[in-house]
Design a protein around this nucleic acid. Structure first.
Length: 201
DNA sequence: TGCCCGATTAACT
DNA sequence: GTTAATCGGGCAA
């Protein structure tokens, strides 16, 4: 029996680099419901935001710098930056190389490695373990040292969602420029999002 | 070189 | 509701 036949039905498809080589506005909603693991710790993605290089709120809007260099590389890699000098935030580089566009991973529903997450986060509240970009990185143990790593190889593991999901969109969180663009996507009804979605986008 | 602001969070009043 | 923690980028001098 081939490995493929063995895996069928048991394991979901791993997201390859080609998955990310599309518009951020296609990749972002397609990530909702996918499973993100880092060293085996993680869960189901329930909230993301799209950042296009033409977007004034994007780090790549004003051109390449030391910090955003990974955004200018090929798709399918992790762009990790420090936020407010304290937190780490995880992004997936998308679109053809040079587009400098990415998707910010804002929240996941914890499903694997709960004990490790609680230890790193210092709280037992499951809902608060990964509900926010900074909290998510803390729970999974992701830091700036992981900036530039490929998403289709360890320590990362990304699995496509199983079946269909209902997706909601709304304005992004914590930005002042282009704050009206509805480029935040979430899993309908999830209690693990960082902030509730309005009824209308 | 110095100063202000930000894709945040937790601990305050 | 407000504020501190604390780092890189952007812009003024």
């Amino acid at each position: 029996m081939s490995p493929r036949a063995h895996d069928r039905g048991r394991l979901r498809k791993r997201l390859a680099k080609a998955f990310f080589r599309r518009s951020v506005h296609d990749v972002a909603p397609d990530l909702i419901g996918a499973t993100l693991l880092f060293n085996g710790v993680g869960g189901r993605i329930v909230e993301v935001e799209a950042y296009h290089h033409t977007d004034p709120a994007a780090h790549s809007y004003r051109g390449p710098t030391d910090r955003n260099a990974v955004m200018y590389g090929p798709p399918g890699y992790a762009y990790i930056y420090r936020s407010y000098g304290i937190h780490w935030c995880l992004n997936f580089v998308c679109e053809p190389e040079g587009s400098a566009s990415a998707v910010l991973i804002r929240a996941i529903e914890p499903t694997a490695g709960l004990a490790a997450m609680r230890r790193r986060r210092g709280t037992a509240e499951e809902r608060l373990l990964c509900s926010g970009p900074g909290r998510l990185c803390a729970a999974l143990g992701i830091t700036g040292a992981d900036n530039g790593l490929a998403l289709d190889a360890p320590p990362f593991e990304l699995l496509a969602r199983a079946g269909s999901v209902e997706i909601v969109a709304g304005p992004r969180v914590g930005i002042t420029k282009a704050a009206d663009l509805p480029w935040r996507y979430g899993l309908q009804g999830s209690r693990f999002v960082s902030k509730a979605f309005g009824s209308k986008a």
